[in-house]
């Protein structure tokens, strides 16, 4: 390595005999810097050792943090060595060259495309464009195979009249599972874990709800059920401040008032969480009286069309 640095600069050789020979760069003295040489050498040796150290750690079973530190030394040693080399040991010659116009010279046919032989057939060009448009339409067909037509999917959930309320494991929910001020995520029997059927069953206690009279009967003895899917962007409305009877969505902080029909009281949501009509049976379990009467989850353009 030391011998090499005292050599004259290497030159590009011409590529083939008879090829146009370009003048080579004028020679420059290669910087002498023993200190920098030692630093570069040390960096490369450190990288070498760290690389084999990493191999050893890996073979002994591996440890993420030790591996990372050794990898850092290995990569950093190579990188730092090369950079110091380039800065201290290379003849860093500042060179100036002329900038040339980017636009191509016009040839004798004029213009880059220069094809009157093609452009004269205006009608055929239009027909060809039309043909490609037809092909485009034909190729668009597979795109519609990517998903089903939205149809009524967005308007309905698995809830049906008579379905029992079950928990996420599919076990039937009993009123004793929800103490006063408590809540539980419930699903229609047969669809535990359903994404659009997820519903919050909240025990607010009798006499506190201020919903419309017909909806009061949907909430027997203060057990009220609202869709858990946020009407803003569809996150599960999972946060419940029991003492204030407010539900909060953790994604965008839409807040809903449980006592007043889950109307939004803050955040970007506009529609209330739909209320599920339920009935409390004599054995302490619940059944649904039907599906939600409005679509659950985030809005879409024809949400108020009734499907």
């Amino acid at each position: 390595m030391n011998d090499r640095t005292t050599e004259r600069p290497e030159r590009m050789r011409r590529s083939a005999p008879g090829d146009r020979q370009e003048p080579d760069p004028p020679p420059l003295a290669i910087p002498e810097n023993p200190m920098a040489e030692r630093i570069v050498g040390a960096a490369f040796v450190a990288a070498l050792l760290a690389g084999f150290g990493l191999l050893g750690v890996y073979l002994l079973g591996g440890q993420t943090q030790v591996e990372a530190i050794l990898l850092t030394i290995c990569l950093g040693g190579i990188g730092a060595g090369i950079i110091v080399w380039s800065q201290a040991l290379l003849p860093n010659r500042i060179v100036s060259e002329t900038r040339h116009p980017l636009r191509s010279e016009p040839d004798e046919e004029g213009g880059v495309l220069a094809a009157p032989a093609i452009t004269r057939r205006t009608m055929l060009i239009r027909l060809m464009a039309a043909a490609f448009a037809g092909l485009g339409a034909a190729l668009a067909i597979p795109v519609f195979s990517l998903g089903p037509a939205p149809g009524r999917d967005l308007f309905v959930t698995p809830w049906r009249s008579g379905l029992r309320l079950v928990d996420d494991q599919g076990a039937v929910v009993h009123r004793d599972q929800i103490p006063m001020g408590g809540l539980l995520t419930v699903f229609p029997d047969g669809s535990p874990g359903s994404a659009d059927g997820q519903t919050l069953l909240i025990n607010v206690g009798a006499g506190l709800l201020q919903v419309a009279p017909d909806r009061l009967s949907w909430a027997p003895e203060g057990f009220v059920a609202y869709s858990k899917v946020c009407t803003h962007a569809g996150c599960p409305v999972g946060l419940y401040r029991a003492s204030l009877h407010s539900l909060i969505c953790p994604c965008h902080q839409s807040t809903f008032d449980v006592l007043r029909g889950a109307v939004p009281t803050g955040g970007p949501a506009v529609r209330p969480l739909p209320q599920l009509p339920i009935k409390l049976q004599s054995d302490g379990t619940f059944v649904a009286l039907g599906d939600f009467t409005e679509p659950v989850g985030p809005s879409f353009w024809n949400i108020h069309s009734g499907g």
Binding site: T64, I73, G79
Partner: peptide, 19 residues
């Protein structure tokens, strides 16, 4: 030289943070 060195240094910085 400079770019190759920078490639390795970039990788080194990220490896340290990542590990």
């Amino acid at each position: 030289f400079r770019s190759v060195g920078l490639l390795f240094l970039t990788a080194a910085v990220i490896a340290l943070i990542a590990g």
